[in-house]
């Protein structure tokens, strides 16, 4: 187990380098440059631009720029935004909490509602409740997130007045609830369907027959014997899904005007702020890697047949 964790942590190094390099190259490939963008529509003195570029190290060959960036990272320096002069780390730390909060809330909704609905549907496969859940989840899967987002805004905020259409204060959980529901809807639908299949299948397993033959109460047979087995594939999916939720958060943040990573990336992209984009994306990749590692370890806890060596 310990060796497995160490190996997984070591594997993060090439992933980290590869991800930063890729994003770095992509930023370079984009047309326009951040220094010229500072002048906007005004006419520019080429000498001034060249001097500024030399100052920022942007006149160096690409590999050298990348190396400098990496060396900076190891010293804990994520770079500085060219336009605003703010350190990138400040941009990340001020935008990240809102996104993490939104993702966490959406994840919670996904787990609770998704697993809950899935178990109900799986236990009553073929019944009316099951069919209703199948229909609703199919709807969530087939309608794009931004459509669902605007529909929720119109329905819950404008028509019913239960929530604000946009988020004013991203530290208020109550305001984040509506965007989190939107963000969770797709994952929730997948989780519900996966849980349903898993529960329905395990319900017919031999060990469930044994559980009944042992004289266990129906409640115990389901909560102890059925759930542990049914949740194994669901947990795997949930791990991968955290990445999807973080990526999806960027779209949802746009719809509900949340000041999170999404808007920070969007702004950085429009100003060609390479360091900011690379910093944010790298950070998200690291979060994703750590979470998947945790999920894989949890998987071994749930299923004793899996042993990591």
């Amino acid at each position: 187990m310990g060796r497995y964790v160490v190996r997984r942590l070591l594997q993060m190094i090439p992933v980290f380098i590869g991800a930063t390099l890729l994003v770095f190259l992509m930023m370079y490939a984009l047309p326009g440059d951040p220094v010229r963008a500072l002048w906007g529509e005004r006419s520019v003195d080429e000498a001034q631009i060249a001097a500024m570029k030399a100052d920022l190290g942007l006149d160096l060959p690409l590999w050298q720029q990348y190396l400098n960036y990496l060396l900076g990272l190891f010293r804990g320096d994520f770079g500085t935004q060219i336009a605003s002069g703010r350190p990138v780390i400040d941009v990340i730390t001020s935008a990240l909490p809102a996104t993490l909060r939104l993702t966490a809330l959406a994840f919670l909704i996904t787990v609770v509602l998704g697993v809950g609905l899935g178990v109900i549907a799986g236990l009553r496969r073929g019944g009316k409740t099951d069919r209703a859940i199948l229909f609703v989840t199919l709807l969530f899967i087939s309608v794009p997130v931004f459509v669902i987002g605007y529909l929720y805004q119109v329905f819950f905020a404008h028509n019913l007045g239960w929530a604000r259409p946009t988020v004013q204060d991203p530290t208020a959980w109550s305001q984040l609830l509506l965007p989190a529901l939107v963000l969770a809807s797709l994952s929730l639908a997948y989780v519900a369907r996966l849980t349903r299949t898993s529960v329905a299948e395990n319900k017919r397993a031999d060990y469930m027959r044994t559980a009944r033959a042992k004289g266990l109460t129906g409640r115990r047979a389901v909560s102890v014997h059925l759930m542990r087995n049914s949740l194994i594939p669901v947990v795997t999916f949930l791990g991968v899904d955290i990445g999807n939720l973080m990526a999806g958060a960027i779209v949802t943040e746009g719809i509900f005007n949340v000041n999170g990573i999404g808007s920070a990336v969007y702004r950085a992209l429009s100003y060609r702020e390479g360091a900011t984009v690379v910093g944010i994306v790298t950070f998200m990749i690291l979060v994703y890697l750590v979470v998947t590692l945790l999920v894989d370890l949890l998987y071994a806890v749930l299923d004793p047949r899996i042993r990591y060596a």
């Binding site: 031999d206 044994t210 033959a213 042992k214 004793p304």
Partner: peptide, 30 residues
């Protein structure tokens, strides 16, 4: 009555025992 007065032994013990619970737990559950 099941388990207490009458009980059943199944053919394939591998699939009839719960794979994710220890045998001690499954025996003690009775």
């Amino acid at each position: 009555l099941r388990g207490e007065r009458m009980s059943m032994i199944f053919q394939d013990a591998l699939s009839s025992l719960n794979p994710v619970l220890s045998v001690g737990y499954q025996l003690g559950e009775m």
